[in-house]
Design a binder for these strands. Structure first.
Lengths: 166, 166
DNA sequence: CAGTTTAAGTCAGTCTTGTTGACATTCCAA
DNA sequence: TTGGAATGTCAACAAGACTGACTTAAACTG
């Protein structure tokens, strides 16, 4: 059919057609990825933005507003709208920093943790079934490609978060 | 460290921690995935929705509005706004159906194809470098996990599109 | 200590992209 | 032939992102 790369190793996985399929797979998979939490949140007055905030506050309790908005990649005005409703509704607590009183440290309340669990249980269930269907070797490849797809500074943030995990 | 699954095969890749890392990898990678086209479109009066429409019209020339909105997973009203601007700007042509005059068949003009190429070149370049960095086996795993993550009907649409490709 | 920088929050306005609801046109089947 | 279903369009609205300008409080620095 087509010619292999010079050097012997097949580079067929780098054809434009393969890349296009990967792009479309990414598009459709992301829809599935967010579908369950979106469904849960649709009932409440919350959206995907609230989910993201709750997720990362849970991951890094005590994080500051500035940390969070850099991680999320949004402006403070955008994050603030979301955070304000979460604090008003008693899902997130905002504590003035001890060392630096300008900073606000963010924590989930019990209610916030309950919602976090509900959302992440649904998302993990889908992830688990996908992982199980594909098998450990496929999962390792999945993670490798995703990491290579990140921008440099995002990758660093991701890795820092990941390595703090366990 | 931790106990393996009963039956011998390690199921360590299914721990909540592994799943959580996968979820976050998906989040950060999707940001990278869309970053280049977003940057290109930011200058023009277009956004990600225009990119998606252009991408799939290019993939399936002559597709109807209804086909397209099912594929994209948005309402016809939402798609229509995007299509209207693309038609007005001469990037997309909308032809009344011959057999069924209710239908509109969509095609990229030369200008539309030029923009499509510009956007997909950028996105493919990132994809290619990620694929190359991870290697063919990782890419196969990546694709497997993504497919397993899709909802059933999305997976069917994706596969139909993929199999029509080459 | 005075002046500057930093962290956070607010107000106002805009843009993109999703949503519903109402409507016109066309097709098809009872 | 008439009434329903399908396709697409128009209008209005909401969520969530953005920029820009500003305030407050605290920290840092020369």
């Amino acid at each position: 059919m087509m010619s292999d790369a010079p050097g012997g190793e097949s580079l067929l996985f780098l054809t434009d057609e393969q890349l296009r399929q990967g792009i479309e797979a990414m598009f459709f998979a992301y829809r599935g990825f967010t579908a369950d939490p979106d469904r849960i949140l649709a009932g409440m007055a919350y959206g995907r933005a609230h989910h993201r905030a709750i997720h990362f506050i849970n991951r890094a309790p005590g994080t500051t507003v500035n940390n969070l908005l850099v991680l999320l990649g949004v402006t403070k005005q955008s994050l603030n709208r979301v955070l304000r409703t979460l604090v008003e509704d008693g899902l997130v607590e905002s504590k003035v920093g001890k060392a630096d009183k300008r900073e606000r440290h963010l924590y989930l309340t019990e209610g916030g943790e309950a919602l976090e669990r509900k959302l992440s249980d649904a998302q993990r269930a889908r992830m688990r079934s996908a992982y199980r269907a594909a098998g450990p070797q496929a999962v390792a490849g999945f993670r490798q490609v995703l990491e290579a797809m990140m921008d440099g500074d995002l990758r660093r943030k991701y890795q820092a978060l990941r390595d703090s995990g366990t």
